[in-house]
Design a protein around this nucleic acid. Sequence first.
DNA 1: TTGCTTTTGATATTCATTTTCAGTTACTGG
DNA 2: CCAGTAACTGAAAATGAATATCAAAAGCAA
Lengths: 143, 143
Amino acid sequence: MILEKKKIFNDFATSKGLRSTRQRDIILDIFLSTHQHVSVEELYLKIKFSNPGIGYATVYRTLKLFVEAGLAREILLHDGQTRYEHIVAGEHHDHLVCTGCNSIIEFEDETIEKLQNEIAARHGFMIKSHKMEMYGLCAACRQ
Amino acid sequence: MILEKKKIFNDFATSKGLRSTRQRDIILDIFLSTHQHVSVEELYLKIKFSNPGIGYATVYRTLKLFVEAGLAREILLHDGQTRYEHIVAGEHHDHLVCTGCNSIIEFEDETIEKLQNEIAARHGFMIKSHKMEMYGLCAACRQ
DNA sequence: TTGCTTTTGATATTCATTTTCAGTTACTGG
DNA sequence: CCAGTAACTGAAAATGAATATCAAAAGCAA
Ligand SMILES: [Mn+2]
Ligand SMILES: [Mn+2]
Ligand SMILES: [Zn+2]
Ligand SMILES: [Zn+2]
């Protein structure tokens, strides 16, 4: 799994003529070791802990490369922090975001995805990406 | 329609103990005269034109009041600008956003809304709001 | 190694939005 | 109608996430 993702990134880097650097390896390792929906800040702090030398800008730059490489997806919720999550091949999900405890529930719904495509088709629109988020209170936060 | 919205805001203001000010009246008038999806910047410039004295902060503050009053909805697309649109009672729509020409197509889909509620219910989640946007190219921009 | 190019990290900058605060204005009740 | 008081305003400063800058460092091909 992890080796596979590293290979994907290396192949991407090669095809783009990017150099192999210690920083990118470290950032990828640590990104792959995180759970879903890490903010840049969180990831930066985690990296900083074991690798104090790595700069903020490099983390930002590298995460964008992961997105380009198809390893990560950018998640913009309503807290002004960009988050990243792992892309699992052939899988897509959307989010229920609890405004009480900031937890995120993931869900998949084939029917909705299909309806989205129909709506787009009806308007002659070509979808490149979509976002669907529901904000509210999770079971625990409803007391 | 416009008078009705003004009444909604006045009632809201009264219920909250807010004072009636010239600035809020002007900003509401001009907001009501705009079309969908105005950015704060756009609205500010429009206001500035006829009322040079009104400050940026007041526009920001007042738009948030409109949201609270149920007159406006905040729209966060992915261009770093917060936009506001009019809320029409008993109506809800989502957006197709063209990344080519920045146009926005609105659509309603009862089935999707129903499915969203079912998903939320299944997770014991209480929805307060949701956002659904599809990004891509509109018919014109596909050439 | 050499030489060239990319990459990095510290720092400065940007840009939307929020906060601050002193002066102004709206309401209350006498 | 006025005075007192609390809310409101606008200019400017502050914030905070993200990006740009640029000199030094590192990767790579020969
Ligand atoms: Mn997710
Ligand atoms: Mn709309
Ligand atoms: Zn919760
Ligand atoms: Zn278009």
